[in-house]
């Protein structure tokens, strides 16, 4: 059996597919493999956003606790998705819970390591920006659609 390195995994992953070799070498040094059992928490609201989780297998739910009704799932994520963006934005604190819905395999990148390497190698930061911004923009757009309550009784 061939054991894949973090670099091999990243190279095959859609979130890193257009990274050049130098960028892949740099970012691989920040990554580890993580597994989460179905039902376990990947991230808790209020936690330091010290890791970037990128899903390889399985589904995760983004949940927000609502008083009186228990947690509400507002988004589900699948293989290829980046779990949370709080690690990029000061004060770098998780803004929601993320729970493994099924068994989940993820690559987790140490956020300080990634940001440090981006400071040293602005080209890495630019590649991340180009590849991940569309993903982020799509998530914002989808969130707006959900806000419209399209299927509500008063929707046309």
């Amino acid at each position: 059996m061939v054991i894949k390195t973090i670099r091999d995994i990243l190279e095959e992953h859609p979130a890193f597919k257009s990274f050049d070799d130098d960028a892949l070498d740099l970012i691989s040094g920040c990554g580890t493999n993580e597994h989460f059992a179905a039902g376990s928490m990947i991230l808790r609201e209020g936690d330091d956003a010290s890791k970037v989780h990128i899903l390889r297998k399985g589904d995760a739910a983004i949940e927000i606790a609502a008083p009186g009704t228990g947690p509400l799932i507002v988004e589900t994520l699948h293989a290829g998705d980046v779990v949370d963006w709080s690690w990029l934005v000061p004060p770098r604190r998780a803004m929601s819970d993320a729970r493994a819905v099924t068994e989940v395999s993820a690559i987790s990148l140490d956020a300080n390591c990634v940001l440090g390497k981006c400071d040293e190698h602005p080209n890495l930061g630019y590649q991340m920006f180009k590849l991940w911004l569309p993903h982020l923009a799509e998530r914002v757009r989808n969130g707006r659609m959900q806000l419209l309550d399209l299927y509500g009784a008063n929707a046309g």
């Binding site: 739910a61 799932i73 959900q146 399209l150």
Partner: peptide, 8 residues
């Protein structure tokens, strides 16, 4: 659009 935690 949204669901409780029991939704898989």
């Amino acid at each position: 659009d949204h669901a409780g935690p029991e939704w898989t």
